[in-house]
Design a protein around this nucleic acid. Structure first.
Lengths: 404, 404
DNA sequence: GTGCCGTTTGTGTAATTACACAAATGAAAA
DNA sequence: TTTTCATTTGTGTAATTACACAAACGGCAC
């Protein structure tokens, strides 16, 4: 008998759907949305494996199970087509025999139906029934997706205003946050992730999924903007800086692992306690990313605005120099000398200023300490610069970044 | 007999005027303009003292003689009124007996008539004749002054364009310079002098006189602008920087000595070889002066833009911080600690960064070296800043200037 | 008062630094 | 070719630095 003939028995709320399907297949069934949150599960109480019971308890599939499924290629297959996928037991994640199918609407995966096939036989008929169950689930999941989409759209619009600083007063922001059931208490920060390649739908799916599962409490929302992924990060006030840093690193590592893309650049801005300061954090995160792209080696270890040091204003000084037609004559003289004498006083000076130590600089340059001292003496003689004077020294350090 | 009755004998060129007056008074006579340049001198060849002969040879009164006359109060009297001044011999400057009178037009002194009275008797009649000679000379000096004024006006207008960068192309500037008989070869720089009090006519007179006498070859022109004295300085290309520096210092010292005003601030800008860059030098001199007023202690020894070091861009960074609502959290934390614990970590850090030496900083703060080390350790603990990292250290050095 | 705790000063040590001087290298000029 | 001169490396010394540890100081809570 097919499902179509018993149309009167088809439940019209998602809650009963799993039980209905389970009855047809004769084994435990769970229905999940695209983010692995449980929509509905059948009421079997025996022969349940670890993965299933943990999933039901948490109302979502545990992280390590999802990871395992991705690694085993199961998720890839499910996203690939609407045909059922047979899954061999994966004891490492507590998963027994399964058959799974993805639920589609047009070109989009709305969720999955999982059947624990431990004892049951899956013949052509059961498979056909599973496919029909998927098309049945599609209607339910569509509604849920639309509700979620609308909510997300509202949140994203709110985020946009927060990032641009156009969200209004503190009171107005709080009101709006309450309306959207968002908590903006504690510490807030904006993170920006930049991909080495442009964002494909697959990358977008992974990113979206991660923001909704990976330390979900801490990531309020995400949005894409010009090939960048923006996150609004929320942490407890204590140790907010460290937690944010560690959170972002973890997020990025996971994203690289999931997407297979390496070299994702991630930065974040000021960690603030007032939501009306979020736009400052946003600008800082953007600027930090910009500067990391401009000075990749020097800023390779930098994640946040605060760590930029002098690079925080290096572009502004550079613009000022441009405008004032200014060139540091000391550097000009050294570079001219280097050219005509085939020496490397410029590099020597840079290394010395960078390390602020003759010993370390000499070691980095593979030269004798006295050679370095001699070169510094030559620099003094040629340019008249006084490296004892912190002001001149500091100026040189900065100008060398700009003038090379 | 009065001069009026022998109207036919009165010379109508300034050259003959001294001889004519000398004939009336029976002694050597010189007529000078307000800048002590010789306009006319009588042809006596005997009984001539050192001051007179040197004056005639150089076509202007020697510098040391003018200085002596100012110090003896003679010049003051001459500028005070139109009555003849008897001058006792001043052997230190090679000056014998003199009687002198200033030549006026309205409220302005146009020049002086000097009579060497060594042998001659000066009675009331001679004094009356001297006064009449002065009024006679006034006509000649007026013409000369008007010609000079017009020329100066042209030069000043040209300077103004050079300073504002609106003097056109290199070729146009050269053409204009030739027309005004100015040499813009070699090295050029703009200097700015600021008076502690507003510029009185007396100060203006001294300043004008100095620019036309003190190392005249090097000072192309001067002009006043908003209580500032601007100089266009010209030097030979070799050692231009040093020569300019030393020239300006000398000029300022002399001006302070002459006017009795102390604390005149003087700065100069980029020493350039192309006249079309003069406006850059002008802007730099202005900015240097501005910054010296803003940071008087830190920049007390600074004369030129090049020596500003990081102060060159400190205002721009400060503006950026303002705009980005940025505060260095390390400094904030230290200042908060200082307030609540009544310590002076902030000053300690500033001193250490300034000297870049524990030894020197400890000496300046009158504390033990280990005390300083201890405080630096506390700063590390409180703020988490790493003073080994040159980038962070440099950032702190700059932010401390801005945030105090 | 007593004890606590942050701060200051003193002692000692190993590493680093600045500097002077001598010797070796190496490339360009005579 | 020899000479010259800038550069590099090595040796030695006195000052400076970072650091550990001990002891003294002084305000403040109990």
């Amino acid at each position: 008998m097919s499902l179509n003939r018993e149309i009167d028995q088809i439940p019209n709320s998602p809650e009963g759907l799993a039980d209905y399907v389970a009855g047809k297949l004769g084994c435990p069934v769970t229905i999940e949305d695209a983010n692995h949150r449980i929509i509905s599960y059948s009421s079997h109480e025996t022969n349940v494996d670890d993965a299933r019971s943990a999933t039901i308890m948490q109302r979502k599939v545990p992280e390590h199970v999802v990871n395992g499924l991705w690694q085993a290629g199961v998720m890839g297959n499910l996203f690939e087509s609407a045909t059922p996928v047979f899954v061999s037991p994966l004891p490492s994640i507590g998963l027994g025999d399964r058959i799974a199918i993805s639920v589609w609407k047009n070109k989009e995966v709305l969720g999955f139906i999982w059947a624990q096939t431990e004892q049951a036989k899956m013949g052509d008929d059961e498979i056909r029934q599973l496919k029909e169950a998927a098309s049945l689930a599609s209607r339910h999941l569509q509604k849920q997706r639309d509700r979620k989409r609308e909510k997300e759209e509202n949140i994203r619009s709110f985020m946009h205003h927060l990032f641009q600083g156009t969200a209004g007063s503190h009171a107005e922001i709080e009101k709006q946050a309450r309306k959207l059931h968002l908590s903006l208490e504690g510490s807030l920060s904006v993170a920006v992730l930049e991909f080495t390649e442009s964002i494909t739908p697959s990358v977008e799916r992974h990113a979206s999924y991660l923001t909704e599962t990976f330390r979900r409490k801490n990531i309020i929302s995400h949005m894409f903007e010009n090939d960048l992924l923006l996150l609004l990060i929320h942490t407890h006030e204590d140790e907010a800086e460290n937690v944010t840093q560690e959170l972002l690193r973890g997020f990025r590592d996971k994203l690289e692992e999931r997407t297979g893309i390496s070299g994702i650049r991630s930065t974040y801005g000021k960690v603030c306690t007032r939501p009306e300061d979020i736009h400052v954090s946003y600008r800082q995160a953007q600027k930090t990313l910009e500067l990391k792209n401009r000075y990749p080696e020097a800023l390779s270890g930098v994640t946040t605005y605060r760590e930029l040091g002098v690079y925080q204003f290096i572009q502004e000084i550079s613009a000022l120099y441009e405008q004032e037609n200014y060139k540091n004559s000391v550097i000009e003289a050294i570079k001219a000398y280097d050219r005509s004498h085939n020496t490397s006083l410029s590099d020597t000076l840079r290394s010395f200023l960078h390390h602020n130590s003759t010993h370390q600089a000499a070691r980095q340059l593979h030269i004798h300490t006295n050679t370095l001292l001699y070169r510094l003496k030559r620099i003094r003689e040629i340019t008249g610069v006084d490296l004892e004077d912190t002001n001149q020294k500091t100026k040189l350090f900065i100008d060398l970044i700009i003038q090379g």
